[in-house]
Computed example of a mutant assay.
Amino acid sequence: MDTKYQLTDNEEAKQFQFKIDDAVAKIEYIKAKEKIYLTHTEVPRNYEGKGVGSELIKQTLEHIKAKDLTLVPLCPFVAMYIKRHPEWKTLVLKGINIA
Rank of each mutant, 00 (worst) to 15 (best):
M1L: 14
M1T: 15
D2S: 14
D2G: 15
D2H: 13
D2P: 13
T3F: 14
T3G: 04
T3H: 15
K4G: 02
K4V: 00
K4H: 11
K4E: 11
Y5M: 05
T8W: 12
N10E: 09
E11G: 02
A13Y: 11
A13P: 06
A13W: 10
Q15C: 01
F16H: 08
F16P: 02
Q17S: 04
Q17R: 12
F18C: 02
A23H: 05
A23W: 05
A23R: 03
K26N: 07
I30S: 02
K31W: 01
K31D: 05
A32K: 13
E34W: 02
L38R: 05
L38A: 04
T39N: 14
H40D: 03
H40G: 01
P44K: 01
P44L: 01
R45T: 08
N46W: 06
Y47V: 15
Y47L: 14
Y47S: 14
G49R: 12
G49K: 13
K50A: 06
K50V: 08
G51A: 08
G51N: 05
G53L: 10
S54N: 03
I57K: 04
K58E: 01
T60F: 10
L61F: 10
E62P: 02
H63A: 08
K65N: 14
K65S: 11
K65Q: 15
K65P: 00
K65L: 12
K65W: 07
A66K: 14
A66T: 11
A66R: 11
K67C: 07
D68E: 13
L69T: 12
T70R: 08
L71H: 04
L71C: 03
L71T: 00
V72Y: 09
L74R: 05
L74H: 00
V78S: 07
M80N: 14
M80A: 15
M80D: 15
Y81T: 02
Y81M: 05
I82Y: 05
R84Q: 06
R84P: 06
R84C: 01
R84D: 03
R84W: 09
P86N: 11
E87P: 02
E87S: 08
W88F: 14
W88K: 09
W88V: 03
K89W: 00
L93P: 00
L93Q: 13
G95A: 14
I98T: 02
I98K: 04
A99W: 09
